[in-house]
């Protein structure tokens, strides 16, 4: 009987070798045991744009990469960026507009990578009961916004595209904490907002709430930023974080429902619509030329509006970390280098 299995044995050994090879490939993607533990304090806004981070934390992907990630939650990116600038956090997740303001105001920030981008993230929710049915109806309406945020720039672009510049509408500065109440109370006719506040605002307005998106106007990007001093000296932490995030993004693409559950848990039980708006394709790590164009575009806007001290438009390329992402995912770096 030994003889009959001899040729089969050779065949099985062959298949086993194939399986081992595949297993090795899979194992190579896992953690390398024995690595020194790294610790990073991340200022993380509790927004759907950071779902990848929440998943990575929840699934332990960062820990697998040897990073002890300390989540420092913030309401919005601007606050998270301030935490970094103030030295309370090592890194922060923040949209490009606050970064533009911070750089033009003298902060030495460095963008490690864009972790989220969306054309529908920013929105304007209006009260229909104030005769607002389309964007042109915003003329003469009181529109609330949080200054120095992406919403600020979004509002500018929306009004310009709809011929409502030059004071035809009434932009009104609000704080993130009061914005929902103001729109709900009717103190505002409209409000520039993003999730999860957007859903809350719509709920506050009620059935007459009208939402305007401007995908052609603005593509918002959330990026991992840190002080340049930190970024240049902590490549291992950065790479580990990005690797963990890439695994988390893969998880979102592969298991979006699980990702939504984790997101809901991280946002402390928001409206179902918040998590439903999660688009897996938006969670992608990159560094692209469009971000530079956007930052410069916003810089020109800020100078024109005197929102920042007059100065030449900064070279934001110098605030881009071109090493970390290039090392781990060069195909994701489309920035002209």
């Amino acid at each position: 009987m030994r003889k009959i299995w001899l040729p089969l044995l050779f065949t099985l050994v062959g298949f086993a070798l194939i399986a081992v090879r595949q297993a090795d490939q899979a194992a190579s993607q896992k953690s390398e045991p024995g690595k020194p533990r790294l610790r990073v304090v991340l200022a993380l806004p509790t927004q759907p744009s950071n779902a990848g981070w929440f998943v990575g934390i929840e699934k332990g992907y960062f820990a697998e990469q040897g990073v002890e990630l300390v989540n420092q939650p913030h309401a919005i990116g601007l606050q998270a960026q301030d935490a970094v600038i103030r030295g309370r956090a090592d890194l922060a997740l923040v949209a490009d507009t606050p970064v533009m303001f911070a750089v033009m105001r003298g902060a030495d920030l460095s963008i490690v990578a864009t972790t989220y981008s969306s054309r529908d993230y920013m929105a304007l929710v209006a009260r229909g009961d104030r005769g607002i049915a389309r964007a042109a109806d915003l003329s003469g309406k009181k529109i609330g916004y949080v200054p120095n945020t992406s919403g600020h720039f979004f509002l500018y672009s929306l009004l310009l595209a709809n011929g409502l510049g030059s004071g035809r509408a009434l932009p009104t500065v609000v704080s993130p904490a009061e914005s929902v109440a103001l729109i709900g109370s009717g103190a505002l006719d409209a409000l520039v907002s993003w999730e999860p506040t957007l859903t809350e605002a719509k709920a506050a307005i009620g059935a007459s709430a009208v939402v305007f998106h401007g995908p052609e106007l603005y593509t918002v990007r959330f990026s991992l930023v840190g002080l340049s001093s930190y970024v240049s000296t902590h490549p291992a932490e950065l790479k580990a974080l990005l690797k963990g995030l890439m695994r988390a993004n893969d998880f979102i693409r592969e298991q979006p429902e699980q990702a939504r559950l984790i997101l809901a848990k991280s946002l402390h039980g928001p409206q179902p619509a918040v998590v439903e708006a999660l688009v897996p394709g938006d969670y992608r790590i990159s560094l692209d030329q469009g971000q530079l164009i956007t930052l410069e575009d916003q810089a020109r806007w800020a100078l024109k509006e005197d929102l920042v001290p007059q100065q030449p438009v900064p070279n934001f390329l110098r605030h881009m970390d071109l090493t970390t992402l290039v090392d781990i995912a060069p195909e994701n770096v489309t920035l002209v280098r």
């Binding site: 595209a161 030059s166 164009i293 489309t334």
Partner: peptide, 23 residues
């Protein structure tokens, strides 16, 4: 002026979007 600003702004967006398209 407003039209030029809008054109510039649209062109900037177009660059960004086309860049996104490229990416």
């Amino acid at each position: 002026a407003e039209y030029r600003e809008l054109q510039a702004r649209t062109l900037s967006s177009l660059m960004v979007v086309s860049n996104d398209f490229w990416d």
